Simulated scan of single mutants.
Amino acid sequence: MTRVVVLTAGLSQPSSTRLLGDRLAAAVRAAAESRGAGLDVEVVELREHARDLTNQLLTGFATGALAQVQERVQRADALVVVTPIFSASYSGLFKMFFDVLPRESLVGKPTLIAATAGSARHSLALEHALRPLFAHLRAVVVPTAVFAATEDWADGGALDERVARAAGELVDLLRPARRTPETVADPDVVVPFARLLARGRG
């Protein structure tokens, strides 16, 4: 079965970051079901592995539960990553996890980025901090990023719409592209120019 791992980097408990992660997990499941697919979705709270992350930074080796989480992330077909915004960027805990993750782990992996903060003025951190980070890691980031400020929880409709759109984009990346005779390149077949023009007008 297709596997999706949701990583949340909230520090408090309960955490709005975990709440957004749970909402995204549910939306990804719903998007998959609406497309006739099944997903195994797992939510991981990085705060539970903070000490092991520090130890890996010092020793260079992942141990125990952290090593298992890293393996599940590497084996996952897609990721959802959610961080609180501190000082206009992702949290140190969030960055630490990806700093010690084995290289090449995210290459080509569909990834949905999301963040929480107290004010909407921090929403651009998704574009100037998170998206460049995952571009550097060579993940395939979905077009819609999800940001939830404190006021967004009261206006659930707008947040739910962004969550559903981003979840749909992630699931669509997991579905194999439909191939038709017209989309399969055949060097021996020449498509008349008039037909190509007609297709473009349609």
Rank of each mutant, 00 (worst) to 15 (best):
T2G: 04
T2I: 07
V4Y: 02
V5N: 04
T8D: 12
L11P: 08
L11M: 14
L11Q: 11
S12D: 14
Q13R: 15
Q13I: 10
P14G: 07
S16M: 10
T17H: 13
T17V: 12
L19G: 13
G21M: 02
D22E: 15
R23K: 04
A31C: 13
A32Y: 01
S34G: 14
S34R: 04
R35F: 07
G36L: 01
A37R: 03
G38I: 00
G38H: 00
D40C: 01
V41D: 03
E42N: 08
V44C: 03
H49C: 04
H49L: 14
A50K: 04
L53Q: 14
T54N: 14
Q56G: 11
Q56C: 13
Q56E: 14
L57V: 12
L57R: 09
L57G: 07
L57P: 11
L58P: 06
T59P: 08
F61S: 14
A62F: 09
T63N: 10
G64D: 07
A65F: 03
A65D: 11
Q68G: 13
V69T: 03
V69G: 01
V69Q: 00
R75P: 07
A76M: 05
D77Y: 01
D77I: 00
V80I: 00
V81A: 06
V82C: 02
I85A: 03
F86T: 08
F86D: 04
F86S: 05
L93V: 06
K95E: 02
M96N: 15
F98R: 12
V100Y: 07
P102L: 06
G108W: 11
T111S: 06
L112S: 01
A115E: 05
T116A: 05
A117P: 09
A117N: 06
A117W: 08
G118M: 03
H122Q: 05
S123T: 05
S123L: 04
L124Q: 10
L124Y: 08
L124W: 04
A125Y: 02
A125M: 08
E127M: 10
E127N: 08
A129D: 08
L130A: 01
L130V: 05
L130G: 00
A135Q: 13
A135S: 15
H136N: 10
H136I: 11
L137Q: 02
L137M: 03
R138V: 09
V141D: 05
V142E: 01
V142R: 04
A148L: 05
T150Q: 06
W153V: 07
A154L: 14
G156P: 11
G157T: 15
A158S: 10
D160G: 15
D160W: 12
V163H: 07
V163E: 03
A164S: 14
A164V: 10
A167L: 00
L173C: 13
L174W: 00
R175E: 04
R175M: 08
R175W: 00
P176S: 12
A177M: 10
R178A: 15
R178G: 09
T180H: 11
P181K: 01
T183I: 13
A185Y: 04
D186W: 02
D186F: 00
V189W: 09
V189S: 06
V190W: 11
V190G: 12
A194H: 09
R195T: 08
R195S: 09
L197R: 11
A198M: 11
A198T: 14
R199I: 08
R199N: 06
G200F: 13
R201G: 10
R201Y: 10
G202H: 15
